[in-house]
């Protein structure tokens, strides 16, 4: 067991976890942040994607300990951050995914939305090709990606409006 000091969604949290636990396991089973999903066990599907200092990374391939000293954003962090900025409703990415029908089963989407979020913060006006590349590490089995692509494009326009 080791005591980890983690910064998750802006909160500084202390949590005890065995050293061989991944960040994904710490998030889901220690902190109850179950919005981060597990799909493949070993970095093949992207469902466990979280933002580490704003960059999309795979929490199933990162030891809990390795997350120390970095700002971690999970899907649960988007809505509060949006509200803290005075936003109404959901975060523009979440809202666009909902509006466009991009959430079928919804299981891969927390990771997908975080990859989209990271893209939009770096490139607020991405092309379809940019989006396809940025999301190419997040597998979705329901949508055929079409409505996801629409959602990311819509989120880009909405993010611009907000900014």
């Amino acid at each position: 067991m080791r005591l980890l000091e983690l910064e998750i969604n802006g909160d500084r949290l202390h949590v005890a976890a065995p050293p061989h636990w991944t960040l994904l396991e710490v998030l889901r089973y220690e902190l109850g942040l179950t919005g981060t999903k597990q799909g493949c066990d070993k970095g093949d599907c992207g469902a466990c994607t979280v933002l580490v200092d704003g960059k999309p990374q795979l929490s199933c391939l990162m030891l809990g300990s390795a997350a120390q000293g970095h700002a971690i954003t999970t899907i649960e962090g988007l809505l509060p951050a949006h509200r803290a900025q005075g936003g109404a409703g959901a975060d523009p990415v979440q809202d666009a995914f909902d509006r466009c029908g991009a959430l079928q089963c919804g299981f891969c989407q927390p990771g997908m939305m975080l990859s989209a979020k990271a893209l939009l913060s770096e490139n607020p006006t991405p092309t379809s090709t940019d989006i396809k590349h940025a999301l190419s590490g997040n597998l979705c089995r329901c949508t055929g990606y079409t409505q996801i692509l629409e959602a990311a494009l819509l989120a880009a326009t909405k993010t611009e409006e907000v900014l």
Binding site: G43, T49, K55, P56, Q57, L58, M62, S115, S136, G137
Partner: peptide
């Protein structure tokens, strides 16, 4: 190499 997240890590 691999996918976007792998290249970040």
């Amino acid at each position: 190499v691999a996918g976007p997240q792998h290249r970040q890590m």
